[in-house]
Each structure stands twice: as structure tokens, then as C-alpha cells.
Amino acid sequence: MLALVAVIDFLASPDIIIRPMLVLGPAFASLWCGIRRTALVGLTALALSAALSYHHHTLGRRHNTLTLLAMAGVAAASVAASADRKKRERILADVRSVAEVAQRVLLRPVPRLVGPMHIAVGYTSATAEASIGGDLYEVTLTPYGVRVIVGDVQGKGLEAVETAADVLGAFREAAYDEPDLTGVAARIETALRRRLDAEPDGRTPQEGHGRSPATGPGRTAESTGEKFVTAVLAEFGEGEIVTLLNYGHPPPFVLRGGEGGFAEPDDVAPPFGLSDLGAAAPRPHTVKFAPADQMLLYTDGVVEARDGEGRFYPLAERAHLLAAGDPEQALSDLRADVLRHVGGRIADDAAMLLIRRR
């Protein structure tokens, strides 16, 4: 840019003054370059301007001196802007590092192989540059089989992350101790109620997402004044049966022999945190899960993803995308299709857990 402006000014007549545009050099350098390089570009622009002024016999004239002073000011401001940008980049890098550590603590990496199961995980954040959110998942190998939880915390932000941490902590501890899923679920409910009861009075509930099966269509967290966590718990035992507990969460999708369907619960149950509404806890229901079968557990960010015309993502119609031989590739294909459906970034966090029986 400096060379182009200098050549044009050098060839132009003295009446056409182009060299003040040399200030664009340090100005643009401050956007991408470091402090030293920005300073070098600024000094180069000043040197070129002085040389061109000498060439046109304007060096020492009042208006030319003012131009050089203005260029020096812009160069100094560019160096300061570059220094401030580098400082902010370092702060952002530190924040991202902390977020990555928090993500590894909250959502620990899931092994590819857990007992007889081959597992793939996918997480897509609705917020640019975000690493963690209110969606949660965990896979644990216990004496009672492989136990899994996939859930979604009502609300967003730090409070949702804290609630997710409480739920995951309770699940990780109870999954090893409790002989059945209902005991695990009871421990999670107790931990969540303890957290909600400890919150300061008068705190405004965060905006809810989705419906609460316990409160009926159209009634969300705003109308009930409650916070909650929807979740599905699954236990893969030694046989070809999976035991499921659904707490107001989208039902898992089971794919068997190229055909699939949703593992709908036998009855409607409230999410965790809404036990004080008096609704009955869900009853465990079982689903056949033979070798080579697949089960997709997900959060509502997947099925509630809308295209430009407001249509939800048709998960059942896109189940053929899970046919890839590698589970990670199959889940990657499905995630890419969800993003194509919405035409960009999704509106809500979306977590997916694909399980295949080896």
C-alpha cells in the first residue's frame, strides 16, 4: 500500500497531492501487525512522505509540515492501538485457556470404547467462541453396566454451567454406588434441590427453553417460577436390553438395521428440579439394543434447530446419515447436516452422544 501510494504521488504533478494517504499504512498495520512492525510501517510512511515532499519541492512549507505532523500522530496512535490489541488478545487467550480447562473438568473427554460400547460425542455451542454451556453428558463404566446421562439445564450463562456441574457431580458419584437407575436419579434430584434451595430469595429465573412436560404446553420456567434440568439416564447391561429413565428430555433415537424410531417413555415425567410440583417420578422402561444397533442421545438444540422457514430439524428423516462405519464420522455427518439445515449457527447449544454396541 505504501509503495503504491508513493509511486502514484511520485509520478503525479505537484498540484495533485496523494502522499497524505500514506497514513493508511500504519492504520491498517495496527489491525494485524505487532507493535514493532506497526512502528516500522509508521516510520516508513513518514520517510516516504518526507522524500516525496523533497521531490516536489514542498519540504519546509507550512501545509506540508502540518501533514507530516498529522502523519506522525496517526503513526503514534496506530502503535498504541496495536499495543492495546495485543494486550486484549493475551487476555482473551487466557480466558479461552481457563474455559478449556473448565470444559475438561465439567465435560470430561469420553473414551471411544467403554465396555462393549463404541461412543462418539459431539457438542456445538450456540455462542461464538464459547467452550461450555448448559448441556451436559457423561458415560461411566460401573459394576452395573455402562451408565449414561445426557441433559440440558434451563437457562444460560455461568449459573447454568454451575448447575450442570452439580448434576454431573451427583451422577458420577451415584452411578458407582446405586444398584439401579432410580437410585441414581434420586441422588441427582436431591443434589439439585439442595442447590436450588440454597439460592438467594428473589433471584429472577433465567429464560427457559423448551417445554416442561410436567407443566404442560406453553408453560415454561417463567410461568412456573422454577429452574429445572431435563435429562435421560441410560443403563447398558450385559444383555441386549437398555434401561432408560426420561426426565422431560427428548427421547433417544434408536437405529436398528437401517430403520429407526424414538424410544418414547411410557409416561410423562417432570424434569429434575420440579419434584415439588407433585408429579410422579418416571418409571424405567427398556429398549432392545442388540450388537450393531445404535442409540443417539441428544439435547433439544438438535431437534429444535430451525431453518429459514421455521421448520424443525427432521431427525428421523436424516437417520441415514448415521450409517458411516466410524461412529465419529457418522456423528460429524449429522452435525454438519444440522448446521446446513439452519444455514449457519444454531440458536441453542446442541450435544449429541452416539452409542453403538460392538
Rank of each mutant, 00 (worst) to 15 (best):
A50K: 08
T65P: 00
I35N: 06
H56I: 06
V79C: 14
R36P: 02
S82D: 01
G122K: 11
S30K: 03
T38N: 07
A50N: 05
V146W: 00
A120E: 00
E129F: 11
E138H: 09
L141D: 01
R37A: 14
M117V: 00
S131N: 09
R36Y: 13
R88Y: 14
G42V: 02
I119A: 00
T124V: 13
V79W: 15
G122C: 06
R96G: 04
V74H: 08
S125L: 11
L52I: 08
H56N: 15
T140R: 15
R112T: 05
M71Y: 10
V98R: 08
N64S: 11
N64F: 10
V148D: 01
A80F: 11
G34I: 05
W32Q: 12
L92I: 04
L141P: 02
K156S: 01
L107Q: 05
Q154L: 08
V101D: 14
K156E: 02
D135L: 04
I149H: 07
M117T: 00
R85I: 06
G115N: 03
R85P: 05
L46G: 01
T67A: 09
G122P: 03
Y54L: 15
K86I: 09
L48F: 04
L69A: 13
L48S: 02
L40C: 05
A39S: 09
L92K: 07
A128Y: 12
L46I: 07
T124N: 13
G34R: 07
R88C: 05
P143K: 09
P111T: 00
L113Y: 01
L40R: 11
T44P: 11
D94Y: 13
E129G: 00
A72C: 02
